[in-house]
Design a protein around this nucleic acid. Structure first.
Lengths: 179, 179
DNA sequence: AGATTATGTCAACAAGGCTGACATAAATTT
DNA sequence: AAATTTATGTCAGCCTTGTTGACATAATCT
């Protein structure tokens, strides 16, 4: 029951990739779905115990990456609405994970910063994801990390590539890469 | 405004990756988030116009991949509850995208199949994702596709690797492949 | 016959998206 | 200086898609 394996049924029922559709890469599409599902599963479980959700994680992550970013910038990165952000952000502020400071140049702005508590949580959530990534890279050649990085970067819409580039703590990246 | 670039503020506020946390790979973590966000964006927009959501896409996808799979198997793959599935599946049946046929061996089971209409939609949704993937692979070496595939496969929890393997329409792929 | 299994369905709830409207303070423009 | 625009906050309410638990039916298995 619910044995998810062994089911090849009738070949006539296969999607017939060569004729109807010009080479749809179902394998990678599906793998990407599973990979992302499991990638988010570890932090999801931790968040659950704190009464938080994935939305909280995203906010913590981006504030951690760019301390001092403003609310507008965060909305821009997350591509959600003000209201969606507000609800979750408020919880993080109330629980002492995030602090707001009035913008120095423009006093209308609120710069977002993590507290020590927030930083600790952000790191704790990222840890299993990072471990998963390094396990996934483990039996690949060291150079393959940049292949994967390149692939993922190209998957991002052009309009947002810049966003991605700026977020990284990249060294100029001469010939080699990372350590 | 909301210029998402140029913000490096105070170096003291950086997460200090080397001391507090042992090498968290924030770059790939983040890239994976963006990549998946945009990966799903094209089909999401199309679904929107049909009054469907991402949940419908997943169902269409998996039925397309394994015509005749049962409800229990689908639940297993999607890892959602019966109720969550039922609601969405019902819509797809009512709109003529999915058909149910009584299981031949076990008449309690309902085998799920796409209609021509459902197949057409599944393909239409997959097309931009497939295009995105091949664009992302375009300036990599041809062998790098298997690097990416390997990476993604390793990102999946062990318990589900099998599921993934079985879903693919893989040729044996000679001397290679996992354990 | 009785238990288990596969599926369907009902009610109710929660998270986290969304919209539109409106308020305030600060900055910018006229 | 006044008017406008901008950055943020907040309110009310909606939708999708996830959740749980309970219960019904038919088919299969013991």
């Amino acid at each position: 029951m619910a044995d998810t394996s062994a089911r090849r049924i009738d070949p006539a029922e296969e999607p017939a990739p060569s004729s109807e559709a010009p080479e749809i890469d179902f394998d990678l599409i599906e793998l990407f779905f599973f990979a992302y599902r499991d990638f988010t599963s570890d932090p999801d479980h931790m968040l659950d115990e704190l009464g938080f959700g994935r939305a909280h994680h995203r906010i913590l992550h981006f504030i951690n990456r760019r301390p001092g970013l403003t609310v507008a910038e965060l909305l821009d990165v997350l591509q959600i609405t003000k209201q969606s952000l507000a609800r979750v952000l408020k919880q993080l502020i109330d629980t002492g994970h995030v602090m707001q400071v009035q913008g120095p140049r423009d006093r209308r702005q609120r710069e977002l910063h993590l507290t020590a508590k927030g930083r600790a949580l952000a790191l704790a959530l990222a840890a299993p994801q990072s471990r998963r990534i390094s396990r996934a890279l483990a039996d690949l050649k060291p150079e393959d990390r940049s292949t994967v990085e390149h692939f993922l970067k190209e998957m991002v819409n052009r309009e947002f590539r810049q966003q991605v580039d700026n977020l990284g703590h990249h060294e100029p990246e001469s010939a080699e890469e990372r350590s």
